[in-house]
Amino acid sequence: MQQYVARGVHGQTVEVLAQRILTGQLPEGSTLDIGALQTEFDVSLTVLREALRVLAAKGMVDARPKRGTFVRPRGDWSLLDPDVLRWQFSRQVRPGLFADLHEVRSIVEPGAAGLAASRATDDDLAALDDALDAMAAAGNDAGAAVEADLAFHRALLAATHNELLQRMEVLIETGLAERDRMVHRHGPGDPVPAHRAVVGAIRARDALGAAQAMGRLLEQAVADVARLEESPE
């Protein structure tokens, strides 16, 4: 699914409305006062309607005769849509969101590492090595560290040569990017050894070892987030 890119007044309108829905400020089932929103945002009716069309495409709002435009039940939202994921993770609008992400990663990524150990090509291994090199070179550059980590996990899923697993990239990358930005701002430990252990097992065609190494990496990820949650900051 194509990702929505916020631009100008239209983009800001979409972002604000999405955050209000996700945080419950506009609760499920509530009817939107279009006139009041138009006045509040100081936008044209065309801009507001276009913003609502974006949210309607993501299952968050709908419009019906005599009822007007209303917020749909959460069960109808496209929660795996890249933008809906990004909006949730960027503001941590729901407690336990990172815990949910960890559970998904714990199910998917050790298995992916095991598959990669039996299926990875030379090109796949080169992509993993490149990500490790970028991770090592990033140093204290938080932005570069985040990009390197995302490249690693993207390469890992690609190395499974399973198209459905590769589609998990959207969920894992979106949440992982926000987690990484949060962690790297506070000076994490050296991430390279844990990631290198995964690649070493994949290169050795050790499926069990690769899965176990990925499991240890994920345990460290949980510890990093827990450390930040306990921080006075």
Rank of each mutant, 00 (worst) to 15 (best):
106 S>D: 15
117 A>W: 00
98 F>Y: 11
141 D>E: 05
98 F>T: 08
110 P>K: 00
97 L>H: 07
117 A>P: 14
88 Q>F: 08
109 E>F: 07
89 F>T: 07
125 L>V: 00
120 A>I: 01
147 E>I: 04
148 A>T: 05
134 A>D: 07
109 E>W: 04
137 A>R: 08
125 L>T: 00
138 A>H: 03
98 F>A: 08
124 D>P: 15
113 A>T: 01
87 W>A: 14
130 D>N: 11
112 A>I: 02
135 M>K: 06
103 E>Y: 12
96 G>V: 01
132 L>G: 02
104 V>K: 01
116 A>T: 00
98 F>N: 09
94 R>L: 07
125 L>W: 07
94 R>G: 02
139 G>V: 02
123 D>R: 09
138 A>G: 02
88 Q>K: 10
141 D>G: 03
145 A>P: 06
93 V>M: 11
107 I>R: 14
103 E>H: 12
112 A>K: 00
148 A>F: 15
122 D>K: 10
133 D>V: 15
116 A>W: 00
148 A>W: 12
111 G>D: 03
138 A>T: 03
106 S>Q: 14
107 I>V: 14
110 P>W: 00
130 D>H: 11
113 A>W: 00
128 L>F: 13
129 D>H: 08
124 D>L: 04
135 M>D: 02
144 A>F: 02
107 I>F: 08
108 V>F: 07
90 S>Q: 15
108 V>S: 01
138 A>K: 05
143 G>C: 05
107 I>C: 06
101 L>H: 09
141 D>A: 03
117 A>C: 10
117 A>H: 05
115 L>D: 03
93 V>D: 06
102 H>R: 10
